[in-house]
């Protein structure tokens, strides 16, 4: 297992945000996290990335405990994320956003940046080229020079994904990546994520679009009111009676 969660619990005031959550993510696989709004999905992301300390439980990546580490340390351990309410660097261009995401791909610190040793240019060039390739793959190459805020909403989401991928993490947490995308964009994104998976990047996906979830995910974890009510393959989840009852309601069908 690449990532393993066990016994994760967190309260806000008297309200249970998540309770006793445990699951694992394999290298190069996609796990979808589904459940109604307020089920604790984003809270779980915040706990994994170190933004929120859990009250109990452990999170390990490649066997290394990361609870208690600072967010930037968790990023260097190979976990990055996107945000449901976008957190782009608004004053930077699209390309600069991705290059900023590639922070961990180079080493130069404050002093060496200021003094500009010869290596700087080579390093910059490498980062720039890699970032352009990434933008090309995700379909944002023509907008590389635009300020990030000038992109339409859907493309801003794609840019967040590109930025999260720029440091070449082992695991990316994607918080509703398809929200605001039109059907053809969603399909392109799904294909891209699957391609990414074959290259070895693992993902946890929070997504409401069931088609995307069923198509892309290897495994699905279902949360309801902070509790894990089911875990399994898409087929198993589709057949799971409790999931159908709790999450989808009696009348709805799973696509």
């Amino acid at each position: 297992m690449l990532l393993e969660l066990s016994g994760i619990s967190k309260h806000f005031g008297g309200i249970v945000a998540v309770k006793d959550i445990g699951f694992g993510v394999k290298e190069g696989s996609i796990l979808a996290l589904i459940g109604p709004n307020g089920a604790g999905k984003t809270t779980l992301f915040n706990i994994i990335t170190g933004a929120l300390p859990p009250e109990a439980g452990s999170v390990t990546i490649n066997g290394r405990e990361i609870v208690g580490l600072k967010p930037f340390e968790i990023a260097s351990a190979g976990i990055t994320r996107t945000f449901q309410n976008l957190q782009l660097f608004g004053s930077m261009t699209v390309l600069e956003n991705v290059m900023a995401g590639a922070y961990l791909r180079s080493k130069k610190g404050f002093v060496r940046s200021f003094l500009s040793f010869p290596g700087t240019c080579r390093e910059e060039k490498k980062i720039r080229e890699e970032s352009l390739i990434l933008l090309e793959e995700i379909g944002l190459a023509e907008t590389a020079g635009l300020p990030a805020t000038q992109l339409p909403f859907g493309k801003q989401r794609l840019l967040e994904i590109a930025r999260a991928l720029a440091s070449r993490p082992a695991l990316v947490l994607l918080d509703e990546p398809a929200a605001g995308l039109n059907p053809s964009e969603t399909e392109a994104l799904t294909d891209y994520l699957k391609k990414l998976k074959t290259k070895g990047t693992a993902m946890i996906l929070i997504e409401h679009d069931m088609q995307t979830v069923m198509e892309a995910a290897d495994r699905i974890v279902v949360l309801n009111f902070g509790q894990m009510i089911a875990e399994g393959t898409p087929a198993e989840i589709q057949a799971h009676p409790e999931v159908i009852k709790a999450y989808l309601g009696e009348d709805e069908k799973i696509a």
């Binding site: 600072k70 990023a75 990055t80 900023a100 440091s167």
Partner: peptide
């Protein structure tokens, strides 16, 4: 927040 997630201390 996003800076930290890119690995910036």
């Amino acid at each position: 927040y996003a800076a930290e997630n890119a690995g910036v201390d």
